Simulated assay, not measured.
Amino acid sequence: MFTFQISKMFQGYSTSFPHGAPQLQVLTISDVSRLTIPFGGDTPALRTLKLSYCPVPWCLFKLSSLTTLILECVPVQSQQSTEEFLAMLSRLQNLKHLDRG
């Protein structure tokens, strides 16, 4: 299983990974104030995405393969309306687990 974690300490390095990560299965992003999508958002094997204490730029992720989505303490400015959140969930056809803290 290929995993990758971006935290506040490594925030600046996320732009160093502009190309796709076709085998990445687990991505954890935590405690970053401005999120730059690593791997150009091209993560076709991504199964688990955990976002903690960071903004969520939904439109930049290709999330169709997700089975687990964990959202912890998403900043208010990144929270979606109920309608937008449900529309996003409807595109996650493989999602089996959702944890929204």
Rank of each mutant, 00 (worst) to 15 (best):
C73T: 12
S64I: 01
I29E: 00
S30D: 08
S30Q: 14
Y13M: 15
D99Q: 14
K96I: 09
N94S: 03
Y13G: 15
C54A: 06
K8C: 04
L71I: 08
L35T: 07
D99M: 12
G101E: 09
L46C: 02
A21W: 00
V26C: 11
I29K: 00
W58C: 10
V32P: 01
K96R: 12
C54E: 02
T15W: 08
L46G: 00
C73P: 04
S65W: 07
P57D: 12
L27M: 00
T48G: 05
D99V: 12
A87S: 13
A87K: 11
F61L: 07
R47H: 05
P22G: 13
P55D: 03
L46Y: 01
T36W: 02
G40K: 12
L63F: 14
Y53R: 07
H19R: 05
C73Y: 10
Q5P: 02
I70N: 10
L66R: 03
S78C: 08
L49Q: 02
I6H: 04
R34I: 08
Q80N: 13
F61T: 00
I29A: 00
L60V: 01
V76P: 12
L49D: 02
G20E: 07
G101R: 11
R91N: 15
V32E: 02
P75C: 13
S33N: 12
D31K: 12
Q11C: 11
M88V: 09
P55A: 02
M9D: 12
Y13D: 15
A21Y: 00
V76W: 14
I37G: 01
K8F: 06
M9Y: 12
V26N: 11
L89C: 13
I37C: 05
Q93A: 05
P44R: 05
P44Q: 09
L24C: 09
G12P: 13
D99G: 08
P18E: 06
A21S: 10
S78T: 11
T67N: 10
D99P: 02
S65N: 15
P55N: 03
L60M: 05
N94Y: 01
H97E: 10
L89V: 08
S30E: 14
V56G: 00
G12R: 14
